[in-house]
Design a protein around this nucleic acid. Structure first.
Length: 772
DNA sequence: CAGTGAGCGAGCTTCCGCTTGACTT
């Protein structure tokens, strides 16, 4: 048994450290937090100093008993959890959960996983910082109080199973308010003037693209300007060149990795984290949940070596970046390749692409600035005071641009700047073509998953480990949905002057195209408006930042954590009580009009399972009729006609094989029912208009697919079959699925073989149940 | 997997932050 037990949070980290420390040390991981408030109830004694009631969650029991056993025999236990608020608390919880003796226990910290950093840490142990632990307890208790007191208000006043929280509710608010701004946005148009000039030289003609420094509000003004250009002389009045430089972006942290992987690779936030986790576990990159842009000295010298070898000494510039994120806790390094000499790795396409992105970003961050020369050319028009301007940009030294350039969120790029032909002051230019194009102002951009993370980080809300889960929570609760919009056609004016004549045209363009953007749902808007009205301080964008200041006070010993919580809780709890008493039930009800058949009112509102349409009042003698709304419909925008259409279902659309076919919409979308079997209509078939022929086609298609899935059937028992599924071949008996053990060929599986697999699996299952 | 929705009332839902597998059809 080793004399020393070292406990870290991540098993991958444990493995690495064990190599550095040798036989005397056994390095284990505790897999993050080991104790938490019980999920069942509030678990905070609000009447007695907010004492938290911690327990060891079921999935942590095993690891705790294992650590207990090793700790008992060890001489010294080294708590090497992260050096931040949560990490300090994990160490404290370990002491509590493992009953560690104070004289046997030492707390150590390191920021980079290198042998020297770890040996250094071992030489400088300390005790647990109880003030920092208290700050974490305040954070934990505050989040519990907010989440577990407001959520039940929503269940009563809006709909069951909803949730509210310090982080998720503000994330939803950002999206709802952005959408409101977009709805209120009135695009304004103006005419942008561009001109192409000819430069005639003895060795040929070249062209110069320019833009007028002013835009015109109306078509009339634009036409008047073009008319003035017909007789005009165009003269270069100035050519200015000045040097400029571009610097590389800092190395990746969690949020910037998510943004760049989204822009450059099209990854969702969840996918980026999944792939990064795989790279981390296989030792390819450093830890992927970090808010620090810091690189270890080892990494800096490795980068210098690689850059010198690949691109030459001129391209090296060692840089240490300073973290801009205000709430940063900086327990880890930036995200970088473990071995910078590996420009690429083996593995599937996603891993390879994400790794290469990280490699480029890291290397570029240690490279020289790019040196540019910017040129501005101003052209005088003899008949009017406006000026044409040409802008050029030449790269004199590419520096870091050789490897990597950060992308931006703006989809519409500026006109390409490039090399300008040689020009001089006083030179006369010949007009080739001048265009006036009507341009519209753009509504504010909708959030993508990654740009929402960026915004949250700027507000200091959420942590690297929670960005991805938060994004998925607000979608799972159906507050927000990720969707595409095809966009609509829009007419715009186009006026052109060439060869002395002016031609006016009306052209069309696509606008409002969106891809994978976050849209608020009806429920999201209703919940948000309710929370903003009744819990304005929690919904304030500065609530978290202010709370963080108080956590810092606690960590510095200037404030007692229970006092801080009390100050918050007393008015907060009053607010909860008052809201329960005073607020009305929110259903987002909207009167659409009257049903022409019965004359009854048609409403749309939130029902127990989501948005519904209702015909008639609930206290009418005849019961009201209900229908669930379809995906893509919303309380706000649904029309009376669309709403009434929902009541045309279920409808019978004829028969097939002497059995009736009916079409309806269920929880999983529109479907056809035939002989008690369900066939999904999919996105492309409209349940209101789908024909008998098309329905039969769908049924036959599904049958064919089912047939193709079958690899094997057995005469002995027709309920058993070998099928082809998403994860390869599997066994099915009645409604249960079974895995086929590795090494067994599904094609040649005998009936007896199947029986054995099923029996073995069933036995294992009952065994598991007994254990529980 | 699959057709709910009023009202009645039981019993349930919920937070944020730290970390990974075991499992899927």
């Amino acid at each position: 048994m080793a004399k020393n037990l070292v406990i870290v949070e991540s098993p991958a980290k444990a493995k690495t450290i064990e190599r550095f420390l040798g036989k005397e040390y056994s390095v284990k991981s505790c897999f993050g937090h080991v104790r938490d408030l019980s999920k069942k109830d509030l678990s905070v004694d609000v009447n007695k100093g907010f004492v938290p009631n911690y327990e060891i969650p079921a999935d942590k029991k095993k690891i705790i008993s294992e650590l207990k056993k090793i700790a008992k025999d060890a001489e010294t236990i080294w708590l090497a959890t992260d050096e931040d608020r949560e990490g300090e608390a994990i160490s404290w919880h370990l002491v509590q959960a493992l009953n560690l003796e104070e004289k046997k226990t030492k707390r150590i910290v390191f920021h980079e996983i290198t042998k020297s950093a770890i040996l250094d840490a071992i030489k400088n142990p300390r005790g647990i910082d109880n003030k920092l632990v208290d700050a974490q307890q305040a954070r934990r208790v505050l989040d519990r109080l907010v989440g577990y007191e407001i959520s039940p208000v929503l269940w009563k006043k809006i709909k069951p199973a909803l949730s509210a929280g310090r982080v998720q509710s503000v994330a939803v608010r950002l999206i709802v308010e952005q959408e409101e701004e977009i709805k209120a946005f009135k695009p304004e148009s103006s005419f942008k003037i561009t001109a192409k000039f000819e430069i005639v030289k003895s060795n040929g003609t070249t062209f110069l693209d320019t833009e007028l420094s002013t835009r015109f509000k109306t078509k009339k003004e634009a036409v008047a300007f073009l008319n003035k250009c017909i007789p005009a002389e165009f003269t270069i009045v100035s050519v200015e060149t000045k040097p400029a430089k571009k610097s590389p972006a800092p190395p990746f942290i969690t949020s910037t990795l998510q943004q760049e992987a989204s822009r450059k690779l099209g990854f969702s936030v969840a996918k980026t984290m999944l792939v990064a986790q795989q790279l981390y576990e296989s030792g390819k990159i450093t830890y992927m949940r970090t808010d620090s842009v810091n690189l270890s000295n080892l990494a800096l010298s490795m980068a210098k070596k690689v850059i010198t070898k690949n691109y030459g000494e001129d391209y090296v510039k060692t840089r240490q970046y300073v973290t801009k994120v205000k709430a940063a806790q900086e327990a880890h390094e930036a995200i970088r390749p473990t071995y910078l000499e590996n420009q690429t790795i083996e593995g599937d396409a996603s891993r390879k692409r994400l790794y290469e992105l990280i490699w480029k970003r890291t290397i570029a961050s240690q490279m020289a600035d790019a040196l540019l020369e910017k040129t501005n050319v101003t052209i005088d028009i003899s008949t009017t005071k406006e000026k044409f301007v040409a802008k050029g940009e030449v790269i004199k030294f590419d520096g870091f641009l050789k490897v990597y350039l950060e992308s931006t969120d703006d989809e519409v790029g500026d006109t390409q700047k490039g090399v300008l032909p040689p020009l001089s002051k006083g030179e006369k230019l010949r007009r080739n073509i001048i265009n006036a194009v009507e341009k519209f102002t753009q509504y504010p951009p909708r959030y993508t998953e990654a740009s929402l993370v960026k915004k949250l980080e700027e507000l200091g809300i959420g942590r690297p480990s929670t960005y991805a889960p938060t994004i998925s929570t607000i979608q799972k609760r159906e507050y927000v949905e990720k969707a595409d919009r095809t966009g609509v056609e829009r007419k715009y004016g186009f006026i052109s002057l060439s060869n002395g004549s002016i031609v006016e045209e009306i052209k069309t363009e696509k606008t409002g195209f969106e891809k994978a953007k976050l849209f608020p749902t009806d429920i999201g808007s209703i919940v948000n408006n309710f929370l903003v009205q009744y819990f304005n301080n929690i919904m304030d964008y500065n609530f978290t930042a202010n709370a963080e200041k108080e956590f810092d006070e606690i960590a510095h010993g200037n404030k007692v954590w229970n006092d801080m919580i009390k100050e918050f809780y007393t008015p907060f709890h009053n607010c909860v009580q008052e809201t329960l008493e005073k607020s009305k039930k929110q259903s987002g009800e909207r009167l659409l009009g009257t049903d022409p058949e019965t004359g009854r009112n048609v409403y749309t509102k939130i029902g127990r399972y989501g948005p519904i349409v209702q015909i008639g009042e609930s206290n009418d003698e005849e019961k009201p009729k209900f229908a669930g709304m379809r995906k893509g419909q919303s309380i706000e925008s649904v029309t009376l006609e669309e709403a009434l259409g929902l009541f045309k279902l279920p409808r019978t659309i004829g028969s097939y094989e002497n059995e009736e076919m009916t079409v309806a919409i269920g929880r999983f979308g529109p479907y056809i029912k035939h002989t008690n079997l369900f066939y999904s209509l999919g996105k492309n078939n409209d349940p209101l208009s789908v024909s008998q022929e098309r329905a039969i086609e769908i049924i036959e298609n599904k049958r064919k697919q089912e047939k193709e899935k079958i690899i094997k059937k057995y005469e002995e028992d027709p309920s058993i079959s070998v099928l082809k599924g998403r994860y390869g071949a599997y066994l099915k008996k009645e409604k249960k699925n079974y895995r086929i053990p590795k090494g067994k060929d599904p094609e040649s599986l005998t009936f007896e073989g199947c029986r054995q697999i099923i029996d073995a699996a069933d036995k294992k299952q009952t065994g598991k149940k007994k254990k529980k």
